[in-house]
Write a protein that binds this DNA or RNA. Structure first.
Length: 477
RNA sequence: GGCCCUGUCGUCUAGUGGACUAGGACACCGGCCCUUCAAGCCGGAGACACGGGUUCGAAUCCCGUCAGGGUCACCA
């Protein structure tokens, strides 16, 4: 039985890279009828916050990833927060100490820092010199009397390690180049490399799928598995997602968290589809896949081993495609309600807006923009880039006909406008542009007859009049 | 700096020694549609990092150079 896990540390929001790691773990588990587990790695007491755990869970649920076991729903391998499994790590630590494979270290962080800098200065790799490996009992007592508390280090066997990565293939490592890692901090809390191994074993994880940044942790972890006498899981390191400047993705690169994307009007299906294609591709020459189709096709053979650059433009296109072609009007309305509380008070109007705008919109926010245009009258026009006098003139000249536009449907409005254009011998844009501008203060957006229909006769005429007097007042000054 | 990973259009990618005149998608450019802006449809431009090998034949295998990324914490 395949068991995979996503193991975030609750020190921040779920970002695009984390979401993809979670997704790939989920896909692989589902592809093989296995289980997907959510585990919270909160061993960093200072930075971990329960609020972040809640946010991460919310975001994961929003994108549509579901787990079979986790801190919120329990399971047979719990608890699923590392802070609640401290006895287990202690037990495992004891085993290693008894075997002589872990040892106390009384060095302070300051001392270690000094040593590290010295080694770096001499252009040597910063490796712990094992000065605490064979402490005399006397020295040990001395340290304790000084008030020092020991951390525990894992004794790395200096051998050559070979293992197979499901994405990268065979990996060989010279372990004499690896520094003895601290596995339990002086406050008694395990570090990542230890807790991770203990949990992956006791939770029965069969496949560890994670980002390439963990490649160098893998030999350490395998060594600890071996020291404990446990068989290690399979490893698959997936390529990282880079920002357009080809550095690690971070806040300064704009919208990188799932939460931000949601607020920007992206739809979860589009997000899933887009990130699934970052570093992985199905055989077919097509790019729109439902999550079920992706599960069916998911495999390690088509995972790339070089990083992918995150491109918001393509993400936008996916969003457009899903809104226009995949989602029903009802689904769009539902997402809109999640996005803006005000939507539920104007269901009918939003229903119309969705019907009219669905096929051309790139973001959910654009529906809300249309709503705002319709409900908020314009108090101040930006005349700097338009020929305001000509616009005003054209509206004045046709106003008596505009008053008589037939409002029964979008099409009747369109026909009325057509007649007016013919009657006055105008080009379409001579009438469309001024009206659009008078109505919205912009020159682009929703199709004009639809806008006029949504506005209704009263607002339509009021805004025209308002625009004319606005222009008059500006030109008189 | 040591160690590790990686290099196909601007970006995501197809490609597993002959089917490659290197295919698709986003973005870009042009046209059509519409007497508006978009959307849609059609078309165009655009890449095997470089240099050596191996081979009858290399985007594909090997070596080197260059370039990018990751990592060297009592963070995960």
């Amino acid at each position: 039985m395949v068991r995979t896990r996503f193991a975030p540390s609750p020190t921040g929001y779920l970002h695009i890279g984390g979401a993809r790691t979670a997704l790939f773990n989920y896909l692989f588990a589902k592809r093989n009828d296995g289980k997907f587990i959510l585990r919270i790695e909160d061993t960093d007491l200072e930075r971990s916050k329960i609020e972040y755990e809640k946010e991460i869970i919310q975001d994961l649920l929003w994108v549509g990833i579901r787990w079979d076991e986790g801190p919120d729903i329990g399971g047979n391998y719990g608890p699923y927060r590392q802070s609640e499994r401290l006895e287990l790590y202690n037990l495992e630590l004891k085993k290693l100490v008894e075997k002589g494979l872990a040892y106390e270290c009384y060095c302070t962080e300051e001392e270690l820092e000094v040593q590290r800098k010295l080694q770096l200065k001499e252009k040597k790799p910063p490796i712990y010199d094992r000065r605490c490996l064979n402490l005399t009992e006397k020295k040990r007592k001395e340290y304790i009397n000084e008030g020092r508390r020991p951390s525990y280090r894992f004794l790395v066997p200096h051998k050559t390690l070979e293992y197979t990565d499901l994405v990268h293939g065979k990996v060989t490592v010279d372990c004499s180049l690896i520094s003895d890692p601290i596995i339990v901090k002086s406050n008694g809390i395990p570090t990542y490399n230890f807790a991770c191994v203990v949990d992956d074993y006791h939770m029965g994880i069969t496949h560890v799928i994670r980002g390439d940044e963990h490649l160098d942790n893998t030999p350490r972890q395998i060594l600890i598995f071996e020291a404990l006498g446990y068989k290690h899981p399979f490893y698959a390191h997936i390529p990282m997602i880079l920002a357009p400047d080809r550095t690690k993705l971070s806040k300064r690169h704009g919208a990188t968290s799932v939460k931000e994307l949601k607020q920007l009007g992206y739809v979860p299906q589009a997000l899933i589809n887009y990130i699934s294609l970052l570093g992985w591709s199905p055989k077919e020459n097509r790019e729109v896949f439902s999550i079920e189709e992706i599960i069916q096709r998911f495999d390690f053979d088509h995972i790339l081993d070089h990083p992918a650059v995150y491109d918001l433009e393509k993400m936008k296109w996916f969003n457009h495609y899903y809104i226009s072609n995949i989602l029903t009007n009802q689904q769009v309305l539902k997402y809109l309600q999640e996005l803006d509380n005000n939507v539920k008070n104007n269901i009918d109007l939003y229903g119309k807006i969705i019907e009219f705008e669905k096929s051309r919109v790139y973001s959910l926010l654009e529906f809300i923009d249309v709503f705002k245009i319709i409900s908020n009258d314009i108090v101040d026009y930006d005349l700097s880039n338009v020929d305001a006098n000509l616009f005003s003139l054209n509206i004045k000249n046709t106003y008596d006909d505009l008053v008589n536009i037939e409002f029964s449907s979008v099409d009747s409005i369109k026909q009325s406008l057509k007649r007016i254009i013919q009657k006055h011998n105008l080009r379409t844009q001579d009438l469309y542009k001024p009206i659009r501008f008078a109505l919205t203060n912009t020159l682009e957006g929703i199709e004009l007859p639809k806008l006029i229909y949504l506005l209704g006769k009263e607002k339509f005429l009021n805004r025209l009049k308002n625009f004319i007097s606005f222009v008059d007042s500006k030109t008189k000054v």
